[in-house]
């Protein structure tokens, strides 16, 4: 039960004058229940990559296996794959269309061929999971705030009960508070249901606190694929490709340079506070 990508290549505008190699020999394995962050600068191929995982884009060469089946096999059911691997796109405006939030969330499960009762129960469940306030269920999705629209969009995919949930830039355009709320809710969902989640983002800050593993994409290639603290130890190289490590990494490195005995590999704010306090305690200084 996992997704495996084996030497996947993809080219945009193949015979045009502006052909771009969007994926360059990508090999990945995503085991069940993992929370993975996919990071890369604009145009690094991260969105292209996730669109391969539910068959929206077809690789020029290479193979993709989902739960032990080759998704490019002739008798493979793409529709089934799309219900198992849910993909939420960056802009909720691209998928919201119904007269109210609730019927919009029902769209996915209804497409799976479920009856009205089952579809509606799933919709209620999904809306509750993303933390949508109940008084908004019967409002027009177009009148919601940015964060609520995002919730409605995620619920719309979650209602299909996927095994893998892919979120393409779920925090783009949100203020820091809205961003933290959404991310915390996603993490909670992952812990509670042990669902595999792939979070696409261009901000390290977003993912550092929550994910088990980070895949850094650059120019269509996988540059790093490791646990957060290992990836962030390359923070100088990350800067060269237009990414930045979380702010705590910089602070800790600066402290270390000035002679404080801190652990520079702390990735979350909580860990950073601990190591800084530890260093201060040992030195016997109090603020």
């Amino acid at each position: 039960m996992s997704i495996i990508l084996n030497h996947v290549n993809y080219i945009y505008g193949e015979d045009g004058p502006l052909a771009v190699k969007a994926l360059d020999d990508v090999c990945l394995q995503i085991p069940d229940g993992q929370f993975v962050g996919i990071i890369g600068h604009t145009g690094s191929g991260k969105s292209t990559l996730v669109q391969h995982m539910n068959g929206l884009l077809r690789a020029a060469s290479g193979h993709i296996y989902f739960n032990g089946e080759d998704i490019y096999d002739k008798d493979f059911q793409m529709k089934k794959l799309r219900s198992k691997v849910g993909l939420v796109f960056q802009y909720p405006e691209h998928q919201l269309f119904e007269i109210d939030v609730f019927s919009d969330v029902c769209f996915g499960p209804k497409n799976l061929g479920l009856d009205r009762r089952e579809a509606e129960l799933r919709a209620f469940d999904a809306l509750r999971k993303v933390g949508m306030p109940a008084e908004l269920y019967y409002q027009s999705p177009f009148e919601l705030s940015g964060g609520q629209k995002r919730r409605a969009a995620i619920a719309g995919v979650l209602a299909m009960s996927p095994e893998v949930l892919i979120l393409d830039e779920p925090t783009a355009g949100l203020d820091p508070k809205g961003r933290d709320e959404i991310l915390r809710q996603i993490k909670e969902l992952q812990v509670r249901t042990n669902m595999t989640i792939l979070l696409v983002s261009h901000s390290m800050e977003d993912v550092a606190e929550y994910v088990d593993r980070i895949i850094v994409m650059n120019k269509g290639k996988v540059m790093y694929d490791d646990v957060p603290r290992e990836v962030f130890s390359h923070y100088k190289e990350l800067e060269k490709i237009g990414l930045a490590a979380p702010q705590v990494t910089y602070i800790l490195h600066a402290l270390k340079d000035r002679g404080f005995d801190v652990d520079v590999n702390a990735t979350t704010t909580g860990e950073a506070v601990e190591t800084v306090l530890g260093a201060l305690g040992r030195k016997g200084t109090y603020i």
Partner: peptide, 16 residues
């Protein structure tokens, strides 16, 4: 391009 993206978003929700 927008049509392409919307189509993809709806296909991802099982639209046919």
């Amino acid at each position: 391009e927008e049509t392409d993206k919307i189509m993809k978003a709806q296909i991802a929700r099982g639209a046919d």
